[in-house]
Design a protein around this nucleic acid. Structure first.
Length: 357
DNA sequence: CGTATTTGACCCGCGC
DNA sequence: GCGCGGGTCAAATACG
């Protein structure tokens, strides 16, 4: 019980900040098949293997069910790119109809230990796996994942449940069509990154080969089926892997002003893939976008704007702290009341920009 | 008292 | 078919 609070509300300030991601990453460089995003002098995000890697079953087993199972790039939802932020590192990737993590075999990507504070991701058209550069502990977990003793509520509940389930068997789901998934890694001491939406936790499972549990959240907005999973890297406890699934069917509850400002700044309404546009970086941004979407003509998903609406960018997001920790934008922009985009680019870029002016 | 979280059981897909 | 493991359910519990 007491752990309860400790668990995820450690340090509200520990969080990072999302750097505007989509195609507007300034100074992004492309190097073979990886991208490097110099968010700041201390932050480098690298994304590897934009092309589907050759399937490699053997290697995937090493990470069998490891924390970053998924990542397959498809029609990614740019919204996440927009939000990823961290003080040190963030990696993003989109996942699509993924296989169960332990069964990923279509592709996988190994993280290349480029530098201590860089992370890599890889993906493939169908499936992908993101793996941390670090080794993975042999963490043995038995079948009953949730063995963190509680033992409190035992049998009575059982009976209830059994009865209930017997009476009301679940509908036979036909192959569950998975929503597109999108994951990213964040260096953060808190598990729950505040992305502006409100989430309700509906489950937690122990993760194979990891001492850290995986938490399951669902968007609390009625009718919105977006889910997200949050887990901490077993090797690098400072890294949190967040996986989003689905698209929000509603605007972000946390913001409205911020989103408006984006809209004004951007292309006037459909944020689509044009938020945070920095004219002199357009080209690079475009490259980036293309790399991730594999089809730059794909219309942006609703979520994009939703996410932009969200508070990952929202400097006003403190009002959300009653539920989850907020990002603490340290080197990223801030939207002012007047709706102007103040500073979306990394400090580095800002300086550069200032010099221009 | 309403809402969010916890947590063991259940469901289901997959590999063997 | 069985076991494993990921994902989900939902009653109990905690919290504001």
């Amino acid at each position: 019980m007491e752990e309860k609070k400790n668990k995820e509300e450690l340090n509200p300030m520990a969080n990072s900040v999302a750097a505007p991601f989509s195609e507007e990453i300034p100074n992004m460089t492309m190097n073979n098949n990886s991208f490097i995003f110099p968010f700041s002098s201390t932050t480098t995000t690298t994304i590897f293997d934009m092309m589907p890697p050759a399937p490699s079953k053997a290697s995937s087993s090493s990470f069998d069910g490891g924390f970053m199972d998924l990542l397959a790039v498809h029609d990614y939802n740019p919204f996440l790119f927009d939000c990823i932020t961290t003080t040190t590192t963030t990696t993003t990737t989109q996942i699509d109809h993924y296989p169960l993590p332990s069964q990923v075999d279509g592709s996988e990507v190994l993280n290349t230990p480029a530098s201590p504070n860089s992370t890599s991701i890889s993906s493939s058209s169908n499936e992908a796996t993101v793996v941390d550069a670090n080794n993975i502990n042999e963490y043995h977990s038995g079948k009953a994942e949730d063995e963190d003793g509680d033992g409190g509520k035992g049998h009575e509940q059982d009976q209830h449940r059994k009865t209930k389930k017997q009476l009301k068997p679940k509908k036979k789901k036909q192959k569950k069509q998975r929503e597109p998934r999108f994951a990213f890694m964040t260096k953060s001491e808190v598990d729950q990154l505040d992305d502006g939406y409100r989430w309700r936790k509906y489950g937690q499972k122990a993760v194979k080969n990891s001492p850290y549990p995986r938490s399951y959240y669902r968007c609390t907005t009625a009718g919105c089926g977006v889910k997200k999973r949050v887990e901490r890297s077993s090797e690098d406890p400072t890294t949190v892997v967040t996986t989003y699934e689905g698209q929000h069917t509603h605007p972000c509850p946390a913001t409205s002003r911020a989103s408006l400002s984006f809209m004004q700044y951007g292309n006037g309404g459909s944020l689509g893939s044009h938020h945070f546009m920095l004219p002199h970086h357009q080209q690079q941004q475009q490259q980036f976008h293309q790399a991730f979407t594999r089809d730059s003509t794909t219309p942006p998903l609703n979520t994009t704007s939703d996410f932009v609406n969200s508070s990952s960018f929202n400097p006003f997001s403190q009002d959300q702290q009653d539920h989850h920790q907020s990002f603490v934008p340290s080197r990223m922009t801030v939207f002012r009341d007047n709706g102007l985009l103040q500073d979306i680019v990394p400090t580095q870029m800002r300086n550069e920009k200032n010099e221009d002016e």
